[in-house]
Simulated scan of single mutants.
Amino acid sequence: MSRSPLLEGLPPIGSPDARLLILGNMPSVLSLASGQYYGNPRNAFWRIIGEIFGCEADAPYQNRTEVLARHGVAVWDVLKHCRRVGSLDSAVEPDSMVPNDFGTYFAARPGIERVFFNGAAAERNFTRLVHLDVPATFVRLPSTSPAQTMGYAGKLAAWTAALTG
């Protein structure tokens, strides 16, 4: 029996008419504690989103999520439940992974055209655990996590090209 805690992810954010979906793997310890996506201040997600869509990275969370919704962007994670110590994707116990209900999610949001994976773990686990035929383009982007070693400028360039292209 595992001694790692069973973690439950966050509900999706964004409007029902979203065209873009950004999928992380599982929220970090700080994100889960705050109930906010990308709650680790060292994660570059909100800084990148702020530069792309013109909002302050440290604005109140509700303001940032409203900016995403106005731009047709939704955010969720691949995993609904898992066991993990710490925040690293590599620490997730593989046999504990339970994906979110993407069948229902995509059925309720038929306008989603592009899905962006925030890093390799999100893409790998979605591919392994979710078996749907969705008429969307799927693209892996560099992780915004502070554990990902690509420099900020490279991350910003890749995310900007993807979200504005």
Score class of each variant (00 low, 15 high):
residue 2 S to W: 15
residue 3 R to C: 10
residue 3 R to H: 11
residue 7 L to V: 10
residue 8 E to K: 15
residue 8 E to F: 14
residue 9 G to Q: 06
residue 12 P to C: 12
residue 13 I to M: 06
residue 13 I to Q: 04
residue 14 G to R: 06
residue 15 S to W: 09
residue 19 R to P: 01
residue 20 L to W: 13
residue 20 L to D: 05
residue 21 L to F: 04
residue 22 I to V: 12
residue 24 G to H: 06
residue 26 M to S: 04
residue 29 V to I: 11
residue 30 L to Q: 13
residue 30 L to A: 02
residue 30 L to E: 09
residue 34 S to C: 02
residue 34 S to Y: 11
residue 38 Y to F: 15
residue 44 A to S: 14
residue 44 A to R: 12
residue 44 A to T: 15
residue 45 F to V: 00
residue 48 I to Q: 02
residue 49 I to Q: 01
residue 50 G to E: 07
residue 50 G to H: 06
residue 51 E to I: 07
residue 51 E to D: 10
residue 52 I to N: 03
residue 54 G to D: 04
residue 58 D to H: 14
residue 58 D to P: 03
residue 60 P to H: 12
residue 60 P to S: 10
residue 63 N to I: 15
residue 70 R to E: 15
residue 70 R to I: 10
residue 70 R to M: 14
residue 70 R to V: 10
residue 70 R to L: 10
residue 72 G to I: 12
residue 73 V to H: 06
residue 73 V to A: 02
residue 75 V to C: 07
residue 76 W to L: 07
residue 77 D to F: 10
residue 78 V to A: 00
residue 79 L to T: 08
residue 80 K to Y: 13
residue 83 R to L: 09
residue 86 G to P: 11
residue 93 E to Q: 14
residue 93 E to S: 10
residue 95 D to F: 15
residue 97 M to F: 13
residue 99 P to W: 13
residue 102 F to A: 04
residue 104 T to M: 06
residue 104 T to Y: 13
residue 104 T to N: 11
residue 106 F to Q: 06
residue 107 A to H: 14
residue 109 R to N: 12
residue 112 I to K: 03
residue 114 R to W: 13
residue 117 F to N: 06
residue 117 F to H: 06
residue 118 N to D: 15
residue 118 N to G: 12
residue 121 A to H: 12
residue 121 A to V: 07
residue 123 E to K: 13
residue 127 T to C: 03
residue 127 T to L: 08
residue 130 V to L: 05
residue 131 H to F: 12
residue 131 H to G: 08
residue 133 D to V: 08
residue 135 P to Y: 03
residue 135 P to Q: 04
residue 137 T to F: 08
residue 140 R to D: 04
residue 141 L to N: 00
residue 141 L to K: 00
residue 144 T to R: 00
residue 144 T to Y: 01
residue 145 S to Y: 03
residue 146 P to M: 00
residue 148 Q to E: 09
residue 148 Q to I: 07
residue 149 T to L: 06
residue 150 M to W: 09
residue 151 G to L: 08
residue 154 G to I: 01
residue 156 L to N: 00
residue 158 A to W: 05
residue 159 W to S: 00
residue 160 T to A: 00
residue 160 T to N: 00
residue 160 T to K: 02
residue 161 A to T: 03
residue 165 G to V: 06
residue 165 G to C: 01
